[in-house]
Nucleic acid binder design. Structure first.
Length: 600
RNA sequence: GGGGGCGUAGCUCAGUUGGUUAGAGUGUCGGCCUGUCACGCCGAAGGUCGCGGGUUCGAGCCCCGUCGCUCCCGCCA
């Protein structure tokens, strides 16, 4: 007989009755009836009830066992007595009558009980991650993650993609997030950087002629965490293709994502791969106040600036501003406190407030109520209801700001909040869309200069010859320029970002020049890639869906830690492994480093 | 870097207007119990109220500072 087990804890059935078997696992639960002890033995596969009576030889050993001890139990499989079967367990019709017990590992009193589905503080969960991972929720999520990754690989390979590895120790690159640096022992004062993404490598792979690349790629960015953004590191399904247009990339990626959501979505409705709506960035910012709209939310924002600028509208606070109206279907009869609460929330978000009008029906006519209704003529009210598509019983909220992007952002946040509070968001659906036509550049107000708005390697949507002779001070043209840059968004989460790349070294140098990088500087920083582009570069493009967020959505979780095996805290510490931690003097000396602590 | 929430027994939590010896459930330990599957019954142990300072006759509670976890803003090509 095997030293540890002949079966798993999820395996035994009625057909096994009479067999002598051996199981190994953890004590999930122990029930002591004095003369009779039940042990629920748990492993990766399931739970089997084991039982022993006082006259058995192994009784003393089993009697000593406590929760989460690791035991190897040997004995005969017996059918449970009439009326004592457990329908909740797949193994519930049988039990193991213990004849021998070997204690493989004892457990101290638990700082985090494995049994039960209580919530525990994050600090405890992270410090004792190995215990938390034994629990059903995390165990299930991590297995889901593994299965999703396997499915993604299978789907990519089936589409003719090949998986390649790229370096982890590489060079720092300008723009983008803060890098993690790794000091070089052999080159004093010089540093490797961990890749923020294998961006340049995958483009080089295209130049090298491999055509369709993918990788489950670790990415490192030294940025602060959020619920949907792990601090430090995350994984992408990184992919790149040669000789493709934007449409070709969409046609390759949408079926992979829609497919994996169909496969693991437990019957939830998924947008068909060919039917992802394509929403231009500008339209998304107007209608949803966000470049990652949750399309399950039916609310659509409209611009009503012109209405508030009319002469028959006397509301001074909204004059000469961008005013966005957020319809709140059914919110008309809400109590005053509902509107006050939202107003207070908006002020907390940095808005001046959140004006509103309630619409009621009085003898067949729509009547506007609320603090600012009286400033609008009946004709202006009609214009508002027509534009926003509101009816009696609805409310309309207003976000106004001299800065259009501020007004849009507050409106977007209000849209999300109203959608939730009014229960308008269907939770049985995965709604995908493409956000396309991102601006190539944006104005950096702090530094009073033009920056790349997203990926500096994207191809501008602009005539090549005209681009090369663009006046770097022609801000109107430059800031109005779009790029072949696109995101995939699902249920309000940015799942993927990609682009058709700029493979033309002249256009690339010019693109960086517009963003304020001297030609020599760009040549130096991207020596490898520009050099490659001068030796025959194919047109290429790709994207990189975030694995962690995909798993989070499919697991129905709202935090990445729930789908990450060994996550860090929000403040980027690993409480289990105790990282980061100080380097010793020898290590520092070898690396030619000295630590200068910040002054307190 | 900034703002909000939380921090009381191993764990989950309660704790009134600042007032006697800080409680409950669960776990742990001991006793009883032969059919439970959140087993049941009896008993016991278990507290730096995150930490430091202050106000007060008196602080878990009020004030200041600080640390940790978390959510958000900044940041995230």
């Amino acid at each position: 007989m095997h030293a540890y087990r002949t079966h798993t804890c999820g395996q035994l059935r009625k057909a096994d009755v009479g067999a002598t078997v051996r199981l190994s696992g953890w004590v999930n639960r122990r029930r002591d009836h004095g003369g009779l002890i039940f042990i629920d033995l748990r492993d990766h596969y399931g739970i089997t009830q084991c039982v022993i009576e006082p006259d058995a030889a192994a009784f003393a050993k089993v009697d000593a066992a406590r929760s989460e001890w690791v035991l190897t139990l040997t004995g005969k499989v017996v059918a449970r007595l009439e009326g004592t079967a457990n329908a909740d367990l797949p193994t519930g019709e049988v039990e193991l009558r213990i004849e021998d017990c070997v204690v493989q590992g004892q457990a101290q009193e638990l700082p985090l009980p494995v049994f039960g589905d209580h919530d525990y503080p994050e600090e405890t969960r992270l410090t004792y991650r190995f215990l938390d991972l034994r629990r059903e929720r995390l165990h299930k999520n991590i297995m889901l993650r593994a299965n999703i990754v396997t499915s993604l690989r299978r789907r990519m390979i089936a589409q003719g993609f090949t998986e390649f590895q790229t370096p982890i120790l590489t060079a720092s690159s300008p723009e983008g997030a803060r890098d993690f640096l790794v000091p070089s022992r052999r080159y004093p004062g010089q540093f490797y950087a961990l890749p923020q993404a294998p961006q340049q490598f995958k483009q080089l792979i295209m130049v090298a002629g491999f055509d369709r690349y993918f990788q489950i790629a670790p990415c490192f960015r030294d940025e602060d965490g959020r619920a949907d953004r792990s601090p430090g590191e995350f994984y992408q399904l990184d992919l790149e293709m040669s000789f493709v247009t934007q449409d070709d990339v969409f046609a390759a990626v949408a079926p992979v994502l829609a497919g994996v959501f169909e496969e693991f979505g437990e019957g939830k409705k998924v947008t068909a791969p060919g039917a992802f709506p394509r929403i231009p960035y500008a339209e998304a910012m107007l209608k949803y106040g966000s470049d990652k709209p949750d399309l399950r939310n039916p609310i659509e924002i409209v611009d009503v600036s012109a209405i508030f600028d009319r002469e028959d509208v006397a509301f001074k606070a909204f004059k000469n501003k961008t005013v966005r109206a957020i319809p709140a279907p059914g919110a008309g009869p809400q109590p005053r406190s509902f509107f006050d609460k939202l107003n207070e929330w908006a002020r907390g978000e940095g808005a001046a407030g959140l004006g509103y009008i309630q619409f009621e029906e009085e003898s067949g006519n729509i009547v506007a109520k609320g603090p600012i209704a009286k400033f609008l003529s009946p004709d202006a009210i009609d214009a508002l209801t027509a534009k926003a598509g509101v009816k009696a019983g609805d409310a309309l909220f207003f976000s106004a700001d001299a800065k259009t992007d501020r007004a849009a952002a507050i409106a977007g946040a209000a849209r999300t909040r109203l959608g939730r509070e009014l229960g308008l968001i269907a939770d049985d659906e995965y709604k995908f869309c493409w956000i396309v036509d991102f601006p190539m550049y944006e104005w950096n107000e702090d530094d009073k200069k033009i920056d790349f708005s997203h990926n500096p390697f994207s191809m501008p949507q602009f005539d090549r010859e005209k681009f090369l002779v663009l006046d770097p001070n022609d801000n109107d043209t430059i800031l109005g320029m779009k790029a072949y840059q696109y995101d995939i968004v699902c249920n309000g989460y940015e799942l993927s970002s990609g682009a058709i790349r700029n493979h033309d070294p002249d256009v690339m140098l010019k693109a960086f020049e517009i963003a304020g990088y001297a030609r020599a500087e760009t040549e130096e920083k991207f020596k490898g890639m520009i050099n490659a582009f001068r030796h025959g570069a194919p047109p290429h493009g790709g994207t990189a869906p975030g694995i962690d967020r995909i798993v989070m959505l499919l697991a129905g979780e709202e935090n990445l830690r729930e789908v990450t095996m060994f996550p860090m805290t929000q403040s980027a510490q690993d409480l289990l492994m105790n990282a980061p931690s100080p380097a010793n003097a020898k290590q520092l000396k070898e690396l030619h480093l000295r630590v200068v602590y910040p002054e307190k």
